[in-house]
């Protein structure tokens, strides 16, 4: 079987709220698959269903060919999850002891558990703090521990929910490298990644699903997603404070716009996707007529963020 995850018209409702609606995705083995969407878009609900912690309202979902509704016990042996905003573990125990505890949830016997834990500690260079209590280690160390915990059962599908949240650049890079190496080691493995960092998604993911208000907007490779805006141009304009966003949107040729207001410096940063370069002169005339002072103007490279803005109509 080529796919590790398949969903067919997968939907989940919480009362009147449609958290997910008719989700159809196929994730291949050996793939790092990204889920991009703002908070509340449904990506967490999707992961909860795929990790067997939540049942769908309708539709089907299969992980490694097993049905999440019926075969959840079989699925659990082969999956694990690492969440960047969780502090899972027991503060009174050391890193090593916590890892051993979690290894026991996967049926290893005691000594086997210790052996695997010790091997992973060595492999990931955690010896220095392996015998420190987890409530006494830094956030970076904790996240590394958390990542290793996710590998304890040698999962075939690893769910990474914002794995580098709040980490400094170096540790984030280290973790991203682990992810890349881990997937390369065995092409039977799959990573499902949610992240707020576009650069991370761009660097890691083979394919990305953009999810918004419970629906999949598009699924494609990073290259293809960037190609969506191959004919458009992206500009960044700094002006004094503006509130005419809706009016700008109505200018012909303006495909998407995002405005960040910095009230303390009285500056607005406008990022705008336009159908062609000439539209920008219409935009500048509009600003002039409205009495808005332009501080700077620059043409920008298209990023995944712009694609997201274009497709969803707002920033991530």
């Amino acid at each position: 079987m080529l796919e590790s995850i398949i969903t067919i018209n997968l939907s989940r409702y919480f009362g009147d709220v449609k958290a997910l609606e008719d989700i159809n995705i196929k994730v291949n083995k050996g793939e790092i698959f990204g889920l991009l969407g703002p908070n509340g878009s449904g990506k967490t609900t999707l992961i909860r269903i795929l990790t067997t912690a939540l049942l769908p309202t309708k539709g089907e979902a299969y992980v490694l060919g097993y049905d999440v509704k019926k075969d959840y016990l079989k699925i659990r042996k082969y999956i694990n999850i690492v969440s960047g905003d969780e502090k899972a573990g027991y503060g009174v125990l050391t890193v090593r002891e916590n890892l051993w505890f979690f290894s026991q949830l996967y049926g290893y016997n005691r000594s086997e558990g210790w052996r695997i834990v010790n091997e992973l500690i060595e492999k990931f260079g955690m010896q220095e703090y392996a015998d420190r209590k987890i409530n006494r280690i830094s956030h970076g160390m904790f996240q590394k521990y958390n990542f290793v915990r996710g590998l304890l059962n040698n999962p075939l599908v690893l769910f990474l929910d914002e794995p580098t949240l709040g980490l400094d650049v170096n540790i984030s890079r280290e973790i991203r490298n682990y992810i890349k190496e881990w997937i390369k080691e065995d092409r039977e493995r799959t990573v499902i990644l949610t992240t707020h960092y576009m650069v991370e998604a761009q660097e890691l993911c083979d394919r990305i699903a953009i999810i918004y208000k419970g629906k999949i907007i598009t699924v494609d490779t990073v290259e293809n997603l960037l190609r969506i805006l191959s004919k458009e141009s992206v500009y960044e304009i700094k002006t004094n404070l503006i509130n005419q966003v809706e009016k700008i949107k109505s200018i012909q040729g303006v495909k998407a716009i995002d405005v960040e207001n910095d009230a303390s410096r009285m500056i607005s940063k406008i990022r705008v996707v336009v159908s062609e370069d000439s539209v920008i002169s219409d935009l500048l005339s509009f600003l002039k007529n409205e009495g808005i002072k332009v501080i700077s103007l620059s043409k920008e490279e298209v990023t995944l963020e712009d694609v997201f803005l274009y497709l969803v109509g707002r920033k991530l």
């Binding site: 990790t51 067997t52 912690a53 016990l73 659990r76 042996k77 999956i79 694990n80 999850i81 969440s83 969780e86 899972a88 573990g89 027991y90 979690f102 949830l105 996967y106 049926g107 915990r149 059962n153």
Partner: peptide
Amino acid sequence: NLQLYIISP
């Protein structure tokens, strides 16, 4: 921790 218990066997 509970979610990790739930998703484990």
